[in-house]
Design a protein around this nucleic acid. Structure first.
Length: 381
DNA sequence: ATGTCC
């Protein structure tokens, strides 16, 4: 743990040495910490440069709400489901062929689905139940190693279970919310006691619920393709603004690529050619602003990846991983952009968490099939 | 990140 600023605001970096973090990410963290209202800023072990502000950071604010900190995908998060797929019947090629229609609008009743998650809607929503782009995915995994058998059992899991990890968010809804506030105070921030802030927080809460509903529907649709059933194990958001009470005072906790550490066990995904970890938060989580890393962290910016990799690797190297997994991504630009090589080492993130007693591993998850999209290339790349 | 830009 590195203290970058002792107080007013307190700024901490949850790593062992500053050299692990890009200068740009550090500068962005300090810039975020300089925003009016910040009392505490924390850079997490997966911190990396983002658009203006770093990804992998949390800010505790007094009487200020900043819509642009969670960004264009408020409600984004990672959910884990146990599946009814039998460990002894794993067949990656057969299962991969069956994963169809996931990029199309769902043919069920989205209004009814949203209502189950507390979201009122009047019209069918073609985006609900779709994964989206960027770093979003649905990944079939298998429990590969158990560190705490009792905890695994408590969570309803068995040691060789096939599980499904879903990383997506609020799609067009969160994007629209971001742009609604982008031009009117989004970056300058809204006074916490203003009507604007209250209105934003209400719409934001809807985006969080929508994101949760979306991950659940992606899980349902994915497993329907495989004639399997699911049950929720954990679902934790990493882009959000949360109203919190601390020593009988109210604050707004902003998270950008920072998992909520107060919701119990959750999964920190590695890259698609690395393990993911089911972890349990430890201690009071105060120094790290009640937040934990949401992944391994990007190493290379999007758009730089193809040039760095395509001379060394072919497309089949990108779709068949060293860990033996399959990757379904018919969008060529996305296939390169989200290459495992573009990400840092999840093992280092785990080492930092254990070293600082922030979280402990409960189980290690091995990727089997990473589903991104069956839609062909985006334009302009 | 984005029913994104034709």
């Amino acid at each position: 743990m590195i203290i970058l600023n002792e107080a007013s605001p307190r700024v901490v970096l949850c790593v062992s040495s500053k050299e692990q973090v890009e200068g740009e990410a550090l500068a962005q963290l300090m810039s975020g910490a300089g925003l009016p209202g910040v009392v505490h800023a924390a850079g997490l072990a997966d911190i990396h440069p983002g658009m203006g502000l770093p990804v992998g950071a949390a800010y505790l604010m007094e009487n200020m709400v900043y819509p642009h900190i969670p960004g264009t995908d408020a409600g984004c998060g990672v959910g884990l489901w146990r599946t009814s797929l039998k460990p002894g019947k794993i067949n990656l090629d057969r299962w991969s062929k069956k994963l169809n229609g996931l990029d199309d609008p769902w043919d069920g009743d989205t209004v009814e689905w949203l209502a189950e998650f507390g979201v009122e809607a009047s019209e069918p929503d073609p985006g609900l139940g779709t994964i989206g782009g960027g770093n979003h995915f649905a990944e079939l995994q298998q429990i590969d190693q158990v560190f705490d058998a009792d905890r695994v059992k408590d969570l309803g899991l068995k040691k060789r279970d096939v599980v499904l990890l879903v990383h997506t968010g609020s799609r067009g809804l969160g994007s629209a919310l971001f742009w609604e506030y982008a031009n009117e105070g989004g970056a300058q921030g809204l006074p916490g006691d203003s009507g604007q802030a209250r209105e934003f927080m209400e719409k934001h809460a809807r985006a969080l619920d929508w994101g949760r509903a979306n991950r659940a529907l992606v899980a349902r649709r994915f497993l329907s393709c495989l004639s399997a059933k699911e049950s929720l194990v954990a679902d934790v958001c990493h882009n959000s603004v949360e109203k919190v009470d601390l020593s009988s005072k109210e604050f707004f906790l902003h998270r950008k690529g920072a998992a909520d550490a107060t919701q119990g066990p959750f999964v920190i995904p590695g890259s698609r050619d690395a393990f993911s970890y089911l972890v349990e938060p430890l201690g009071d989580q105060r120094e790290n602003a009640f937040s934990l890393p949401h992944g391994a962290g990007r190493k290379w910016p999007r758009g730089h990846c193809k040039a760095r990799l395509s001379s060394k690797y072919g497309k089949s190297d990108m779709t068949h991983t060293k860990l033996g997994g399959r990757v379904i991504c018919h969008d060529s630009a996305l296939l390169w952009d989200e290459a495992p090589q573009a990400y840092k080492d999840i093992e280092k993130v785990m080492q930092e968490l254990e070293k600082h007693d922030m979280a402990r591993p409960v189980a290690r998850l091995r990727p089997l099939i990473t589903y991104k999209t069956r839609t062909k290339n985006r334009q302009g790349r």
